[in-house]
C-alpha cells in the first residue's frame, strides 16, 4: 500500500500507461543488489532510488579516489578516501529517505558471490572487470535471479538483460573472454548512458512493462552516437546456463 506522500512523489511515473499504483507497489517491494559502487553504479543506483525501489544493496570494497570523480557522480571531492559504499549510501539516502540502502564493503569473490546475491530479486552488473561479471552471471543463473549487464570503454558501452533459463547469458555471448585488467579509458557520459539503460531495464522488469533487452547485446557508440545490436542466442552448450534448458 502506498502512502499519500508516495502517491505524490511518484505521481508522474504512476501516470505511465501500464505502470500505475500497482507498478509502484512492485518497485517498493523489490530488492535489488548492485554489484559495484563506481561509474555504472552511480547512475543506476540514483535512478533506482529515485524511482522508489524498496531496497538496494551496494557491494564494493574500494575507496574513493580523485581519478574516480570524472564519472562516479555519487562520489564528490569531500569523499576522497572514504569507502565508496558509505559515500554512495549517504547520497542515496538523502535522495530518497523511503528507500532502504545497504552498504556492503566487500570484494565479490567466488566464495561470497552466492551469499551476496541470495534473497535478492535482481542483480545489476556494475563491475569494472569481466571475471567478476562471470561470477555474478553464474550465481544469478544458479539462484534464478535476472541479471542486468552493463560495461563501458571510452565512449563505447554495452548492455544486456539476462533472464535465467530463458535467454542468452553473459557466457553465451562472451564465452569466458577476458580483457586485460588495466586502467581503461572512460568519460562519465558513457556509464551514465549505460547505467541509465540498466536502471530502465530493472524498472521495466519489476513493473512488468515493455520489451526487455534480452537475446541482444546493445552496442552504444558514443562517438558517432549510434546504437546497434548484436543478436545472440542461448547456447545449449553454455558452461553457465546450458543445463538450464529453455529456448535457444
Amino acid at each position: 500500500m502506498l502512502t499519500t506522500n508516495e502517491l505524490e512523489r511518484y505521481d508522474r511515473q504512476i501516470m505511465i500507461k501500464g505502470f500505475g499504483e500497482e507498478g509502484q507497489e512492485k518497485l517498493k517491494r523489490a530488492r535489488v543488489i548492485i554489484a559495484g559502487g563506481g561509474g555504472l553504479s552511480s547512475p543506476s543506483s540514483i535512478y533506482l532510488a529515485a524511482a522508489g525501489v524498496g531496497m538496494i544493496r551496494i557491494v564494493d570494497n574500494d575507496k574513493v579516489e580523485l581519478s574516480n570523480l570524472n564519472r562516479q557522480v555519487l562520489h564528490w571531492d569531500k569523499d576522497i578516501g572514504r569507502r565508496k559504499v558509505d559515500s554512495a549510501a549517504e547520497k542515496l539516502k538523502k535522495l530518497n529517505e523511503g528507500v532502504e540502502i545497504e552498504a556492503i564493503d566487500e570484494m565479490i569473490t567466488e566464495a561470497n558471490v552466492s551469499q551476496l546475491v541470495a534473497g535478492f530479486d535482481l542483480v545489476v552488473d556494475a563491475m569494472d572487470n569481466l571475471p567478476t561479471r562471470y561470477l555474478l552471471n553464474k550465481a544469478a543463473l544458479e539462484k534464478d535471479i535476472p541479471f542486468f549487464h552493463g560495461a563501458v570503454y571510452g565512449f563505447e558501452g554495452r548492455a544486456m538483460t539476462i533472464i535465467p533459463g530463458k535467454t542468452a547469458c553473459l557466457e553465451c555471448v562472451y564465452h569466458g573472454t577476458t580483457t586485460p585488467e588495466e586502467k581503461f579509458p572512460v568519460i562519465g557520459v558513457t556509464p551514465a548512458i549505460i547505467g541509465c539503460i540498466q536502471a530502465a531495464e530493472v524498472i521495466k522488469y519489476i513493473v512488468g512493462i515493455g520489451e526487455l533487452l534480452t537475446n541482444r547485446l546493445l552496442i552504444c557508440d558514443g562517438l558517432n552516437l549510434k546504437f546497434t545490436e548484436l543478436k545472440v542466442k542461448k547456447d545449449p552448450n553454455c558452461k553457465h546456463c546450458g543445463h538450464l534448458g529453455g529456448k535457444e
Binding site: 563506481g38 553504479s41 573472454t177
Partner: peptide, 9 residues
C-alpha cells in the same frame, strides 16, 4: 560489424 568486448564499469 566488429564488436569489441569491453569490461569497464
Amino acid at each position: 560489424n566488429i564488436v569489441l568486448i569491453v569490461g569497464g564499469g
